[in-house]
Design a protein around this nucleic acid. Structure first.
Length: 835
RNA sequence: GCGGGCGUGGCGGAAUGGUAGACGCAGCGGAUUCAAAAUCCGCCGUUGGCAACAACAUGUCGGUUCGAGUCCGACCGCCCGUACCA
């Protein structure tokens, strides 16, 4: 009994059979119940990494399981093929982004196929091909026509040496990653999608997503950030040009009597106007521009202000003047770009007030005794009653908010209002490798949509990356066209679309991909929404929110009758690995190490922490050679074992060895022998419990629990004496492991003489009668501590259980003659005696 | 800074508020073998004890409860996101 599973032969054979038979082709016309299982499509970076393998293995198990439950399954794959890395490769390796990307796709497709995923490859798509992005341009024009697209000025990171726009990722410590130049914020005219039109709708929709992780819904809710607040006007004590006041927004009108200053953004019109005659302020504004556009950077930067010397009038007291600052932490994009500062009840305002020696007045007290308690280093942001606030004194925070809003509205200087943290989606990118925005700029007509008949607007291939910047901009002919509206000479928009646009509708295109339109509504609606979407939690906000928005926008303009694209969402953890360093502190790859020393030099190796696999830390394990050595099934099994799918999974050599051993145990245990006779009731129970339990686990994506149950069942079958029950259990086991290790399952299925493919077999049926035990173990506790256990018939009544407990020697000893004060009996579970 | 999450043996983890540590990995002991690999059997939270058993134990501190890994509060540590990485 030492037979080994021949994965080399089996993997290739069954993968060919599935392909020849079109086993995983999704039939649009099927009458079966449908299941749409989708994993987030990969960026074609070059090679498949373990994170992909884990993601696609999970989806594959679910897809195959749904097939076994009799569903018609759509399980497609494609490529999120536009993006920055292709342009970086073009600069570094002198290859065209298209050639680089398509070569990567070919390589990665080959790697994916070797893992035996049950994918409908006939629906494969790549976002960088005109047949995809051309349809995306058509959708963009539909949204444009529906007035959901507009243009406005917006800040980008500008590298003044390379003369190019930088992504936040390309700004390292305030400097351009290539040039090293100090980055500045610069405003450009850019295209925006009106996601804020859908803010309320996107927020409400979250309530319906009960198959999404709570954490993702919470994150999206906070990101959308609906807040009730107040807008009101501050009058300036002295006009700046023709501006005599400005609007501020606050979520805390209740703290208005605690105000000690007012602040505006560096790019606020008043700041701009004042700077014209004030070189010091102009310099301060320039300084503010040195911070990049990333929120984390802006928020953690030192809070700085510039006292304009002007003051504003407190709206509730015309004699009360507040100094006006320009401050780097006030953002033009949020609210009105102007705030009032209440240091006692806002940490940022408190830090600012301490720095510029401004008054700090408490106006909210958690208790009457603390009405005049001084504020030290920490602002008080909790609930309480209003103090030191004239007509507001004694009100709760919420009552005071309402009172101030009522007063403002009555006197005409302010209004209650709703604001959103969510901002409109800027989709313009000053880059080549993306979907061209189908707009033509004409001197007399302004921006004009490219007629749909002229789509796709195809990216030119003859471009160079010798110098930084967008090659579309300097292409000799591409952008020069005539205006579709007046025929005068005009120029194309040279910005391309954010790649998040590409990933905002690919799941609809998978469901239906005609040549002449983005999708056929009726066919798309057969499959949509996606039943189970699986991907990394890093997409919890942006991608998932944009996809929800895009789908809703299509619904609003009548393109599809689906509002929420993903009914079920699962966010899986990362694949991690130990890190290693040599004595010089340089990162080492696992291949450079043998027996704990550097292979080449014999130097000792320092084992570092376990981290996400990344090129920079050299702890990446390429799935390719692993699949060669152990086969697809062992790798798939590893991806599902041990770690819960939502948590990180550490790749280990010993772990994959263990998986390989288990594959071979499965292979041996399913070997057909002489049929045995007789029933093994105990094994029957274990089998039927496994059938039901594993199905429930896969349904809940609890793959690690399903794996543990398969181990237990395997152990039980191995230990059991020959019987008809044992033969049946081994035969059923093949079907139970089929979604996870499909190659071995097909091979074993054929060896057992079954007809047809296991890929087309149904999930075994469990007998509910066999799930129930006749006897249960009862825990006996004294004061909640376990003292003994006993076995009783299931359903034994409370009195009998109590009597049995009292009869236990160990319980009697533990009671030490004390009289029970109370006895708690949970039938079929425990007896707890309280003394 | 802000938003979200996670924390259980040497390691990954299991556990409808009800016997903490299922299952796997590693380790140790044994069988088989000329030897090894493979395979099979057994042990395996810590401390004390020959043992029966007892005490301790789910990041830290506190609370609710007959009973807390699970619920509540505070804290510590790590991870993810932060709108131009995908």
């Amino acid at each position: 009994m030492n037979a080994r599973f021949n994965h080399v032969k089996a993997d290739a054979h069954w993968q060919r059979v599935w392909e020849e038979q079109g086993s995983f082709h999704a039939d649009d016309t099927s009458a079966k119940p449908r299941a749409y299982v989708l994993e987030m499509f990969p960026y074609p970076s070059g090679r498949i990494h373990m994170g992909h393998v884990r993601n696609y293995t999970m989806g594959d198990v679910l897809a195959r399981f749904r097939r076994m439950q009799g569903h018609e399954v759509l399980h497609p794959m494609g490529w999120d093929a536009f993006g920055m890395p292709a342009e970086n490769a073009a600069m570094e390796k002198k290859v065209h982004p298209g050639d680089w990307t398509r070569a990567n796709i070919a390589a990665m497709r080959g790697q994916l196929k070797r893992l035996g995923f049950a994918l409908d490859w006939s629906r494969e798509l790549a976002t960088c091909e005109p047949d995809y992005y051309g349809q995306e341009q058509a959708l963009f024009l539909d949204l444009y026509a529906a007035n959901l697209v507009y243009r406005k000025e917006s800040a980008v990171n500008w590298d003044p040496v390379d003369m190019t726009v930088l992504a936040n990722e390309q700004v390292i410590d305030g400097r351009g990653w290539r040039s090293g130049a100090l980055v500045e914020r610069r405003k450009l005219s850019q295209w925006f999608l009106k996601i804020t039109d859908f803010a309320d709708d996107l927020l409400d929709g979250l309530k319906t997503l009960d198959q999404w992780p709570e954490k993702v819904r919470t994150m999206q809710e906070n990101w959308i950030g609906k807040s009730q607040g107040m807008r009101f006007r501050f009058a300036l004590d002295r006009a700046v040009g023709d501006i005599d006041g400005f609007e501020v927004f606050t979520t805390r009108p209740d703290t208005l009597f605690g105000a000690s200053f007012s602040a505006i953004a560096a790019d606020h019109p008043i700041a701009q106007a004042l700077a014209a005659n004030n070189s010091e302020l102009a310099a301060f504004i320039e300084d503010c521009k040195r911070t990049g556009t990333a929120a984390a950077e802006i928020e953690t930067a030192e809070k700085k202000g510039f006292d304009t010397g002007l003051s504003v009038t407190h709206p509730l007291d015309p004699t009360w003047k507040l100094p006006l600052f320009v401050a780097n932490f006030v953002l033009m994009e949020y609210g009105t770009g102007a705030v009032f500062g209440c240091p006692a009840h806002d940490q940022r305002d408190l830090d600012f007030a301490r720095k510029y020696a401004l008054p700090v007045t408490r106006v909210v007290a958690p208790s009457p005794e603390e009405a005049d308690a001084p504020i030290h280093d920490e602002a008080y942001v909790g609930p309480g009653r209003i103090v030191n606030s004239r007509f507001l004194d004694g009100l709760s925070v919420d009552e005071a908010k309402a009172a101030v809003i009522a007063r403002g509205e009555g006197e005409g200087w302010g209004t209650g209002t709703t604001v959103w943290r969510l901002r409109d989606w800027g989709v313009s990118r000053q880059r080549y490798w993306g979907t061209p925005i189908p707009i033509i700029h004409c001197e007399s007509c302004g921006p004009v949509a490219v007629p749909k008949a002229d789509l796709p607007v195809v990216l030119p291939e003859d471009v160079s990356f010798d110098i930084p910047g967008n090659p579309l901009d300097r292409h000799p002919t591409w952008k020069h066209v005539t205006c579709p509206s007046c025929n005068a000479p005009a120029v194309r928009e040279t910005d391309t679309l954010d790649t998040f646009v590409d990933s905002s509708w690919y799941f609809i295109r998978f469901a239906s991909q005609p040549d002449d339109q983005p999708f056929d509504r009726a066919t798309a609606e057969k499959w949509m929404p996606v039943g189970q979407y699986i991907g990394g939690v890093e997409h919890a906000i942006l991608h998932l929110l944009y996809a929800r928005f895009w789908t809703r926008a299509l619904e609003r303009i009548g393109k599809i009758g689906v509002k929420e694209p993903f009914t079920g969402l699962f966010t899986q953890g990362m694949v991690t690995h130990e890190t290693y360093k040599d004595p010089a502190g340089q990162w080492l790859s696992p291949e450079d190490i043998s027996n704990g020393v550097v292979t080449a030099t014999g130097e000792p190796v320092t084992v570092g922490r376990i981290e996400k696999m990344s090129k920079s830390k050299k702890n990446v394990v390429d799935p390719g050679p692993i699949v060669d050595q152990y086969g697809a099934d062992a790798v798939r099994w590893f991806m599902l074992s041990d770690s819960p799918p939502e948590r990180d999974l550490e790749w280990t050599e010993s772990g994959i060895e263990g998986c390989w051993r288990f594959i071979n145990r499965l292979w041996r245990i399913t070997e057909p022998g002489e049929p045995a006779q007789g029933q093994d009731k105990d094994l029957d129970r274990k089998l039927h419990r496994a059938i039901a339990g594993i199905a429930a686990d896969i349904d809940a994506l609890g793959f690690n629990r399903a794996v543990a149950k398969l181990h237990e069942l395997t152990n039980a079958i191995e230990k059991a004496s020959p019987s008809a029950s044992r033969d049946a259990a081994a035969r059923a086991l093949v079907r139970l492991v089929a979604p996870m290790v499909p190659h071995l399952a097909e091979e074993a299925w054929a060896r057992l003489g079954e007809t047809g493919l296991i890929a087309d077999a149904l999930w075994p049926k469990h007998d509910p009668a066999l799930l129930v035990d006749d006897e249960v173990t009862i825990a006996l506790q004294v004061n909640g501590k376990l003292r003994d256990t006993l076995v009783a018939p299931k359903g034994t009544d409370r009195a009998a259980l109590e009597a049995m407990a009292m009869a236990s020697d160990k319980i009697v000893r533990s009671l030490e003659r004390a009289a029970p004060k109370k006895v708690i009996v949970v039938p079929d579970r425990l007896v707890n005696i309280v003394i």
